[in-house]
């Protein structure tokens, strides 16, 4: 096995241990709050995996997290930190909904394709801006992506409330899509809104893997992330590589819109994302920037998100916010590199 050849099971063990440690610490917090940790764990598990519907909901939440996880992980490979997935996915979803509302007559196979391209393009444009600013003007992508999140939120409000307002709804949403835009739901999961967008997410992860490890452009991106001076000396245009990953990352985040708009709501709903873009940062960090890890971490965080939803109802002393605590603790234990190295050294020391 390939993993075994590159240093055995240790690289895989770390995230698993980190998740376990984070969960244990989180449950201990629940214990401190006066709730039996075992009870909380049971609720989490049952709520996330207890029935086909629950499983479907977990997968429904996992879908956007895989996209946003990739949108953070890919720029990480080039040494860039994309905090802007939230804004990118907002505009992606808005663009998909706008296309669907403005051209309702487009028939089925073309309609989702068109909406998907629009979602990708809108997100990609929102990724291009901070990429370009970083390369040409030297302003830091972290600041700019954070700022662009606010701008995207404002833009989405304006478009939703003033340009494409749904006259039939009390809620801040856009007009409905045409009938041709709906994508297939996965009916094995009952009423859960999980759709074929899940497969698109898996496909996207595979595509990112191929891009990074098999293509010339991916090699250039990794070289820039590893050592940009050496990359430049080797004739790699590091600026172009940086802009490219930000464009691709924005596009990937934009694809969240497919699952939400085409697969679930049938329109753009303001505030539909419970910070998928930010949880994507956690997903990418847990995955240590690897696409295959993003899939695993996305599924985990999706399950966590669903699982904690029932905590409000079924416990006295903890709320769904426990999932935030759990996420934070998992990230903390993943990033405890020093501790990890220390453990490893003790193993190899004579």
């Amino acid at each position: 096995m390939k993993v075994a050849a590159k240093g055995g099971w240790l690289p895989l063990l770390q995230p698993i241990l980190a998740v376990a440690a984070g969960l244990a610490a989180g449950l201990a917090v629940a214990g401190l709050a006066g709730e039996s940790p075992w009870h909380v764990l049971k609720i989490l598990a049952r709520s996330a995996f207890g029935s086909p519907y629950d499983l479907g909901m977990s997968l429904f939440y996992a879908t956007p997290l895989i996209f946003t996880g990739l949108a953070v992980a890919l720029p990480l490979k080039a040494g860039l930190f994309n905090i802007g997935a939230e804004g990118q996915l907002t505009l992606g979803a808005l663009a998909a909904a706008a296309v669907g509302a403005l051209f309702p007559a487009v028939p089925w196979p073309w309609a989702p394709l068109l909406a998907g391209l629009a979602a990708f393009a809108a997100g990609a444009f929102w990724g291009f801006i901070p990429g370009w600013l970083r390369v040409r003007r030297g302003s830091h992508e972290v600041i700019n992506t954070i700022m662009l999140n606010f701008i995207a939120a404002g833009l989405a409000s304006w478009v939703t409330l003033y340009l494409l307002k749904n006259p039939a709804s009390q809620n801040p949403e856009t007009r409905d899509l045409g009938a041709g835009y709906a994508i297939a739901k996965l009916h094995v999961f009952g009423d859960a809104p999980v759709s074929s967008a899940l497969f698109l997410a898996l496909l996207a992860a595979a595509a990112v893997w191929v891009f990074l490890w098999k293509t010339v452009a991916g090699f250039e991106v990794r070289a820039v992330g590893e050592n940009d001076v050496a990359a430049r000396k080797a004739g790699i245009r590091d600026g172009r590589a940086r802009i490219l990953v930000m464009v691709l990352a924005g596009g990937l985040a934009g694809l969240v819109g497919i699952g939400e708009v085409l697969g679930n709501a049938g329109r753009f709903r303001l505030g539909f994302s419970p910070d998928f873009g930010f949880i994507g940062i956690a997903v990418a960090l847990l995955a240590r920037g690897r696409p295959e890890g993003v899939v695993a971490a996305g599924l985990l965080f999706g399950a966590l998100h669903k699982g904690s939803a029932d905590l409000d109802l079924e416990t006295e002393n903890v709320t769904r916010d426990l999932s935030l605590i759990l996420q934070a603790l998992v990230i903390l234990s993943v990033s405890a590199d020093g501790l990890w190295d220390w453990l490893k050294k003790r193993r190899t020391a004579p």
């Binding site: 090699f219 990794r222 590893e226 050592n227 001076v229 050496a230 000396k233």
Partner: peptide, 21 residues
């Protein structure tokens, strides 16, 4: 170190660097 190599990457990728196009 700074200008010639990707220190954390394998020899194979370092050989490829600059010849990759």
């Amino acid at each position: 170190h700074r200008e010639g190599l990707l220190l954390e990457r394998p020899v194979l990728e370092n050989f490829l660097l600059g010849l990759h196009q």
